[in-house]
Simulated assay, not measured.
Amino acid sequence: MPLIRLIVSLVLLVFAAACVLFAILNYEAVTVDLVVDRLPVPLFLLTLVPLALGVLIGWFLAWMKAGRTRREKRREHKRVRELEREVDGMKARKTEAERRQVTPAMTPAAVPGLSPPRGQSQLAAPTGER
């Protein structure tokens, strides 16, 4: 990213230098005939001011158009945060459920004095473990 900034800065510096040189070379006054009056204006103002206005208007329009993209990005970022909180909650519930699960040592067959459930012999392995 710093390389791109350097390149952009150099291009802007060259453009600014070209504008200054253009202003120096085209400083002579020209008469602009308005409807109500005639006005002497330096030639570089007749070219650089409309150019600057065009750049500003273009920048503003691009910024306005990008507003929709910025708004969608904010919505998506908010949705990602909500989903991450949901996933964290599910992980916490899963961990809690795993912690509460009955271990094989606590099955009725392993505890003296408790009879195994119907249909399961005393020596049968607990379900799910092999």
Rank of each mutant, 00 (worst) to 15 (best):
V14F: 14
A16S: 14
A16C: 13
A17N: 10
A17M: 15
A17F: 14
A17K: 03
A17R: 04
A18T: 11
C19P: 02
C19S: 14
L21Y: 11
L21F: 13
L21W: 10
F22T: 07
A23C: 10
I24L: 15
L25R: 14
L25P: 06
L25K: 14
L25E: 12
N26T: 09
N26H: 15
N26I: 09
N26V: 06
Y27F: 13
Y27Q: 11
E28D: 15
E28T: 06
E28Y: 01
A29K: 15
A29I: 05
A29Y: 09
A29S: 10
V30M: 13
V30R: 15
T31V: 14
T31F: 04
T31N: 07
T31H: 04
T31P: 00
T31L: 11
V32P: 00
V32C: 05
D33W: 06
L34G: 07
L34A: 11
L34T: 03
L34D: 08
L34W: 04
V35K: 08
D37G: 00
D37I: 02
R38Y: 01
R38W: 01
P40S: 01
P40K: 07
V41C: 02
V41G: 01
P42N: 12
P42C: 06
L43H: 06
F44Y: 12
L45Q: 05
L45Y: 00
L45G: 00
L46C: 06
L46M: 12
L46F: 03
T47W: 02
T47S: 12
L48S: 09
L48Y: 05
V49E: 06
P50A: 10
P50E: 10
P50F: 09
L51R: 03
L51N: 04
L51A: 12
L51G: 03
A52K: 05
L53Q: 04
L53Y: 01
G54M: 09
G54D: 04
G54E: 06
G54T: 06
V55C: 14
V55G: 12
V55M: 12
L56S: 12
L56G: 05
L56K: 05
I57M: 08
G58P: 03
G58W: 04
G58C: 10
G58Q: 08
G58I: 02
G58R: 06
W59R: 07
W59I: 07
W59Y: 13
F60R: 13
F60P: 07
L61E: 04
A62H: 09
W63K: 12
W63R: 15
W63G: 04
W63M: 08
W63T: 07
M64T: 10
M64A: 12
M64S: 11
